[in-house]
Nucleic acid binder design. Sequence first.
RNA 1: GCCUCGGUGGCGGAACUGGUAGACGCGCUGGAUUCAAAAUCCAGUUCUUUCGAGAGUGUGGGUUCGAUUCCCACCCGAGGUACCA
Length: 937
Amino acid sequence: MNYDFLKIEKKWQDFWATHKTFKADNQSDQPKYYVLDMFPYPSGAGLHVGHPLGYIASDIIARFKRHSGFNVLHPQGYDSFGLPAEQYAIQTGQHPSKTTTTNINRYRQQLDRMGFSFDWDREVRTSEPNYYRWTQWIFLKLFDSYYDIQADKAVPVSELILRFEKEGNTNVKAHSDKDTPVFEAQEWKAFDHDQQQKILLNYRLTYLSETQVNWCPSLGTVLANDEIVNGVSERGGHAVTKKKMRQWSMRIGAYANRLLLGLDALDWSDALKEMQRNWIGKSLGASIYFEVENHPEKLEVFTTRPDTIFGVTYMTLAPEHELVKKITSPEQQKVVADYTARVAQKSDRERQADVKSISGVFTGAYALHPFTGASLPIWIGEYVLAGYGTGAVMAVPSGDQRDFDFATHFDLPIVNIFHGVDVSEAAFSEKGNVKLTHSDFLNGLDHKQAIDRVIVELETKNCGKGAVNFRLRDAIFSRQRYWGEPIPIYFKGETPMPLQEHHLPLELPEVEKYLPTEDGNPPLGNAKIWAWDEAGQEVVSVDRINHKTVFPLELNTMPGWAGSSWYFNRYIDAHNEKQWVGPKALDYWKDVDFYIGGSEHATGHLLYSRFWQKVLFDLGYASTAEYAKKLVNQGMILGNSAFVYRKKGTQTFLSKGLIGENQVEPIHVDVGLVNTQDELDLEAVKNWQKDFQHAEFVLENGKYIVGREVEKMSKSKYNVVNPDEICDTYGADTLRMYEMFLGPIEQDKPWNTAGISGVHNFLKKFWRLFYQQDQWMVNEAPASAESLKVLHQTIKKIVDDIERLSFNTCVSTFMICINELTALKCSNKEVLEPLLVLLSPFAPHFCEELWQQLGHTDSIEFEPLPTFDLGKVEETTKEYPVSFNGKMRFTIKLSLDMGVEEIKEAVMKEQKTQDQIDGATPKKIIVVPGKIINIVI
RNA sequence: GCCUCGGUGGCGGAACUGGUAGACGCGCUGGAUUCAAAAUCCAGUUCUUUCGAGAGUGUGGGUUCGAUUCCCACCCGAGGUACCA
């Protein structure tokens, strides 16, 4: 019997599906283990060999843990709301749900072929009402909560209202909008409903506000900071500008510190934790309030260098700063207006592009130095960002290079406050031991001492305080798109009103057009039935809005990250109709034990989901404050692009070796047209694209050899390798093992189909220990000592390596094992049976089949892992290398249980007989038990 | 610029806490088998070499009896981030 992988793999995939082998129970006496993959967005392109890398690794863990006696939860689903489906809908008019379903079916087919042990009964799709109902429910929970700074957690708004009724808001310490008014209990009670709601909105964890947003005209939507890369949209690379819009936001800023502190306890890669830390961007410093001459307003700045306060010679505001309009002197009105208008027109990209050119304008107003009372001109400068700190800086040209450059450019004064430092050429921004000068009460103090002192002084004078600032901004939550979760809110005038829990799901309405409306409303503005009848408690026709109980519903939808911020919880109890997750199921599964996915989600999904988890934890719904204590980032599998070389301006293509001095342009050709020797199939390439039909190929040694380059796998580079094709030619088990064999899981590595034969041969070799020319080889005779030693060494190594996620060395270990057993002609059941169990996480179909051939009737999946016997692995004696001054001279066979002194004695004896060193006396002998003996002469 | 990770044969990579560097696989070379091929098996494969040996893990230093591994400086690559005050 041959190794017929196609037949075997089909057989076992069907078996697992019909027997629901991987269905996990929410109740068990076994310990639980939750293995999670980042769920895919089902794109139209299908999977390439890079996609399953993480799924293979997590599947190995899941299967390994089942063998180790765990009740394993290993679910999978689809993040199925998103932009590509909607853009396809705009082009074709096809409903996105239709294309989404098609794509999901294709994904499922491809996933099934690879033999993953997913519990598909728990599948979630974020675009299904029975799922997004709970996404909306979480939105309502956020709407109904505020962040209490004293309790350091989210608390229901009902408690906030009780406090307002009792004592107003003067003593309430909570994260809230800056412009929240101060009121007493009496005043609160006197407010009407709308006024009260408006104030409460300033506290809610999700709130409406007029904010500067990143507006992408091409996509017709706002974008969150993490959706913008290098000043253009992450998707499509379109320009992004600033715009003021009334938008829903999430008060993630309230959690900045906890999100930062929580990282320490997580078993995530340092790189990823560092990315989140930088993104959160905590800095320590001070807030300082400057009086403005002849104006009641105060100018607040944040600085990390309050110690340089006496070096301040002017102030700079961001062009968007709200005080700009108020304080600009009449003479300066025009230049200031021109300047701010010019800056507003620039896109983020343009603004980032000319970071080096200095621009700015004087407002005509002056601020007063809090200690010296000196007049400080207030300027506007592009280099000050509206979004960071207060959007205003105190400029210290001697201590900050940007301030220095600005001052030099506009001829503003520079005061040197650093003793013995020359600041004529550049600012001194080090925080070393240099003492301050020209700094009044700070004279003679160093950086650290001065900061402490000046904060005390600021606080006594009531013009500043020590402060912490975070770079992390609140996350804009509204998207002007169709294919996303509707926000469960309707409007009574200006006041947003939440739907009640029992009204959910608020289902996405049908629309005729998926584009925004002509008056700029989001696509939901096209829906005919999209108003809320308060009396009937139902969604009704928009025509009825003038009726007194019928109100418009929110037209924006939620962003892509909403559904993915909690899906891992839903898997735990995916069919619960009454709750987001049932407490009993949650209590059993709790959190994710092993999470795997790409590091590109560091500042998006992985931050937002931690935020939501903490909110849900504070409110008593989630079981832990961090849902994934262990996270692994799989690397990318890169494509091995193939190039042909066209002689400039001709249709002549030169084989790689013939390029020489010729001017050529490299052109991508499909990697499927090239064999493992880099030889191009000329007939196939002519049929592949019209451009090549009349091409002339110049060959070397009768062949056209292509050039190779490693790049990201992508359709446009024609370097995509389809896993289905690999499964057809080599089988899923080979593909699984080969992907693991390519290199460390966390590392990027190039795909090379040529290398796969090594892994495939391994499986064939292993098969031959069972069958040779149709003859069943397995015998029940006791195995030889050598065979048992090979077995036990293998078990030990594999178990160790899986634990440290070194899957590539696991594959090598299996290969060595089978090579040795083949050499020993070992076909003993005693050896092969445990090996099958050990190998089955890697090559599950292969092992199930042979397991059955060995006479078992149940799946190998729950077979306990074989244990190793150290006595069989270790020998009682061992060859020790003996080196002299680190150089190896001879080996000596010693008993393992010898003590260090005994070993030394034996070595000395041996050394004398060998007469290796010419009469020298050893200074010392170093013995590392089990490893090496070194003699120092 | 700053932060993080990495740099080992022709290639992917191994060497886990300092202990015989290059496991395993690809590729390549030679051989067996075959009419031939495929498949399979065996041997060799870091470089240099006067065949004694010598050099060798990005470069230069250091610690150590001993360094791919630890320390310092630098070079290169990847990812993140950036007028962040």
